[in-house]
Design a protein around this nucleic acid. Structure first.
Lengths: 201, 201
DNA sequence: CGTTGCATGTAAGGTGTTACATGATTAC
DNA sequence: GTAATCATGTAACACCTTACATGCAACG
């Protein structure tokens, strides 16, 4: 991967990168200059809820790669007192690359990696009480996450390009709400019909 | 990682393994002997919907590691005409390890990696029609997945330990249904309030 | 007669993580 | 004074995937 292939008329270049690289490029496609640190914060507030919670070190390496490929441009921005920032902006070919990826790549299947579900799935190995506690903690965490999503929605500037991020956060909110109610239902159904025997332990 | 640490009274040993290793161990904890191939099929029919869709090669390597750690035991099972199967069963210390992990490890946060959401989030880069088509395709895929989940639920044997897998599949069904309705709502909301200007492209 | 299913495994390499190094400023 | 925030980056390494190698049986 990470090789640049010229396809068809030699322009625009189609770049084979992982989806997460396009996510970083996408964050820069809203027009503002961002530092690696800015990207991390924005990703944590927004992208995290439906796509990715990147490690900060990973973002820095991704930005280096994207710069080598000419998809972003970085420059030092002196900060008084503080350490210099390195600010990045997307290039024309970067913008073309994300757009091409969006249109051409046939969207992979979504994936849900839910450790709580995995634990309940293995419920026969633990005491029923353990599951109840697990699900309660999960519901609490969901309430937290829902509050954060609402804060992110409130924080979105009302301009044009931001319509889509706002709409997706709204969609994400529905998903987490569904998780919340389904988890409560699950908890109740496990209590209502408790095991006759001891768990196989 | 993958080192065995003895904690406290030297028994049971606490094993530091990735969650996916415990998923494989968990599949074996239902008591039946399974081959790598069996595990792959079962994971694809069940685990995939809420946790993991492992590569078959990964499963084979994971089983090797688990055997070296003494958490599973494998033996050759001659098949007439066909290639030999290598069947695995969980050991007592394997069962102790999964159970300890379930009880002690404080469940990581779930993660949702949703390429469709990412694309809609970047909606300002594409034509509105592209998003409509994307969401339609997504809804179709969801209907497929829901049908598969229902098939898996129907295929679950009605015995004792299988209560939990059935309950989790039911939970997963709710999540996918929520995705379906939220995606339809999203699609409509994007059509109802179309962009005044051309997309910034 | 080609594809799909059954069945196992190795090799190579990309993706993404944690740990570490560094250092100023602000808040408790 | 100690923690948190701002800010960037390297090194090491674990995780997991794709590609490849192999081969029989059954279905259309």
């Amino acid at each position: 991967m990470a090789t640049v292939e010229h396809v068809g008329g030699d322009d625009p270049p189609l770049v084979a990168l992982p989806a997460t690289a396009y996510a970083v490029l996408g964050l820069l496609s809203f027009g503002r200059e961002l530092s690696g640190y800015d990207i991390k914060k924005w990703a944590d507030a927004s992208l995290r809820h439906f796509y990715w919670a990147p490690a900060i070190s990973h973002i820095y390496r991704e930005l280096q790669r994207l710069e080598q490929l000419g998809l972003v441009e970085g420059h030092e921005a002196p900060q008084d007192g503080l350490r210099n920032k390195r600010m990045y902006r997307i290039t024309a070919s970067g913008r073309a690359a994300v757009t091409a990826w969006l249109v051409e790549s046939p969207g992979e299947t979504p994936m849900l990696k839910h450790p709580v579900a995995l634990r309940v799935w293995l419920g026969h190995l633990v005491e029923p009480d353990d599951l109840t506690r697990l699900l309660s903690a999960h519901v609490d965490r969901l309430r937290d996450e829902l509050a954060q999503i609402e804060a992110s929605i409130a924080g979105v500037r009302g301009d044009d390009a931001m319509r889509y991020p706002a709409a997706v956060l709204q969609w994400a909110k529905s998903i987490y709400e569904a998780d919340l109610t389904a988890s409560q239902t699950l908890q109740q159904s496990l209590q209502r019909a408790p095991d006759a025997r001891r768990p196989t332990r």
